[in-house]
């Protein structure tokens, strides 16, 4: 029996497989289609202080090997989230921890959303890297000094495990990792979508109403593995790795590169069975390669 439990910066997970924010609603939408017994956590869709309408339509474009989206963080706001969404999720899914993904337009907003979450959720993931909302989000993830301030501000308001979801489009991940460490983060989430654009050549117009969006899906996986590898090389913070996981092999690459846990995202849209297939494939891999626990896979890359 392989031990599949992992500790993601204080978040105890019975499985190292989670879901990625924005691809799994508020956690309960896939009940019936996804095998929740093989999930270690769900990450809810981004929540800010007040309701947010998101972008105009169209909000997505299918591309070879992936998906470009500019949903724009539509959400009901933290009050509705705590009053209705979280209780409904706990009722539907009583035994899978919820990671709340939060964002804001100012440092104070981030801190207030986190404070309001209190102990209602099991961990908090800060989105400082959404490419689709100008008012906030990614601006905090593009300057290490600002990033450190916003992480510190959130840290001061919550005792829950704190993850920071970083942008992939930086020259070096190291200063951002340091900023998270200095700010008191417990773990890193890597990667957010990669800024992208699709143009309809017949109309000469951008396909997305937001003009640009974020690329996810199979095609981003090698870029994500490299960033996880880079980050793991410079920090002891555990990493929740995501980006193009479609099968167990994709997840195993992340573990070998340094991940402690993984999140399935875009793949679930096509196949809600990916979560279970990744869990089963990971178990099988550990057995075949003589790993007693999945935790031993973390950083087990051979570079000889």
């Amino acid at each position: 029996m392989v031990n599949m439990e992992v500790d993601l910066g204080g978040l105890k997970m019975r499985s190292p497989v989670a879901t990625a924010s924005g691809t799994f609603g508020y956690g309960f939408e896939y009940v019936g289609a996804v095998d929740y017994s093989k999930l270690g956590a769900v990450t809810a869709k981004g929540i800010r202080l007040d309701p947010w309408p998101g972008n105009q339509m169209p909000r997505h474009a299918e591309v070879p090997g992936g998906l470009v989206n500019a949903i724009g963080l539509q959400g009901t706001g933290v009050e509705h989230f705590l009053k209705y969404t979280v209780p409904w999720y706990r009722k539907q899914v009583p035994d899978v921890p919820m990671i709340a993904n939060i964002w804001g337009g100012t440092i104070e907003e981030y801190a207030e959303v986190a404070a309001r979450m209190g102990d209602a959720v099991d961990a908090i993931e800060m989105n400082v890297s959404c490419p689709n909302v100008k008012a906030g989000g990614h601006t905090f993830g593009q300057d290490p000094e600002v990033l450190c301030k916003v992480v510190s501000a959130v840290r001061a308001t919550t005792k829950r495990p704190l993850l920071v979801k970083l942008a992939p489009n930086v020259p070096s991940i190291t200063p951002y990792v340091r900023a998270c460490e200095d700010g008191g983060a417990n773990a890193l989430s890597l990667i957010n979508t990669i800024p992208a654009m699709v143009i309809d050549v017949e109309t000469r117009r951008p396909v997305l109403a937001n003009r640009t969006g974020g690329l996810s899906g199979r095609c981003v996986h090698p870029a994500a593995v490299k960033l996880v590898y880079d980050a793991h090389a410079v920090t002891k913070l555990p990493i929740l790795a995501m980006g193009g996981i479609y099968e167990a092999k994709d997840a195993i690459e992340f573990f070998l590169a340094g991940a402690t846990a993984v999140a399935v995202g875009t793949a679930t849209f096509t196949d809600p069975g990916v979560v279970a297939a990744v869990y089963d494939g990971l178990t099988d891999y550990c057995e075949r390669h003589g790993f007693a626990s999945v935790a031993q896979l973390t950083g087990a890359l051979s570079t000889e």
């Binding site: 924005g22 609603g25 939408e29 909000r59 997505h60 998906l67 949903i71």
Partner: peptide, 9 residues
């Protein structure tokens, strides 16, 4: 995209 209310596309 998702068909189940998860993605808001």
């Amino acid at each position: 995209v998702c068909g189940v209310g998860a993605c808001y596309a």
